[in-house]
Design a protein around this nucleic acid. Structure first.
Length: 223
DNA sequence: GCGACAG
DNA sequence: ATCTTGTCGC
């Protein structure tokens, strides 16, 4: 039988075009965030496995309150623009192992700053029906001006006349990050949240903690 | 055809 | 993503 994630490249693209229309760029009314999650995926080339880790932080203290992980064989190759079809299966499994769902999720990669406006963060947000933000270390698409040198400086990420996200400097003098709304959040709120989540380093604490935990998890899933 | 190209 | 040493700067 045909598995939900067993798609051809063309079918994946068609699904993105279809689902992009379901994405919401509006922050919910009475948006109260207590738990913020960070997601990261590692690849073990030795046995061709993906390891996903989800960490949940207290939105006020930024302390880790829960973690979960999952592992599986990649069911899709890495193709720029079709990233989510490779990474999401183990990520979703990790989320299922969480005791409490977070109020906001920060992903490594893009949200709507994507050729079809449906990056990893948008895909995950739609599947979990939860607000998501995409925060990438590098750009996938879009043009922008270099933001100012100070923390908090931003510039628009533009594509075909549309604002698809922001280029954000999270610390004085560091390389900027690329922020875009994933689902159920506005571009502006997405940017504000990333800045708030990155009080000390270039990357938000959600990403840093997820990165740290995915490495511990890989050791476990290997041995 | 050529260059770009999240992790 | 991952493979990898030293090096510059605070």
């Amino acid at each position: 039988m045909k598995h939900a994630w067993d798609l051809s490249e063309q079918e994946a693209i068609t699904l993105q075009q279809e689902w992009a229309g379901k994405v919401s760029l509006e922050t919910p009314e009475r948006f109260a965030v207590r738990r913020v999650a960070g997601v990261d995926v590692a690849y073990d080339k030795n046995d061709d496995r993906l390891i996903a880790a989800v960490v949940v932080l207290d939105a006020d203290t930024l302390e880790v309150t829960e973690t979960a992980s999952a592992s599986g064989k990649p069911s899709f190759p890495y193709i720029p623009g079709l990233f989510s079809f490779r990474e999401l299966p183990p990520v979703l499994e990790a989320f299922e192992r969480l005791e409490a769902m977070p109020d906001l999720i920060v992903c490594d990669g893009q949200g709507v700053a994507h050729p079809r406006r449906f990056g990893l963060a948008s895909h995950l947000g739609l599947l979990l029906d939860t607000p998501t933000i995409g925060c990438g270390k590098t750009r996938l698409i879009g043009e922008y001006e270099e933001p100012g040198d100070e923390r908090g400086s931003t510039s628009l990420l533009l594509d075909r006349g549309e604002t698809i996200g922001y280029c954000l400097r999270t610390q004085n003098g560091v390389k900027p990050v690329y922020v875009s709304a994933g689902h159920r959040i506005s571009q502006e709120d997405a940017c504000h949240w990333i800045l708030k989540l990155a009080p000390r380093y270039r990357l938000p604490e959600t990403t840093r903690q997820a990165d740290q935990w995915v490495k511990r998890a890989s050791a476990q899933w290997t041995s």
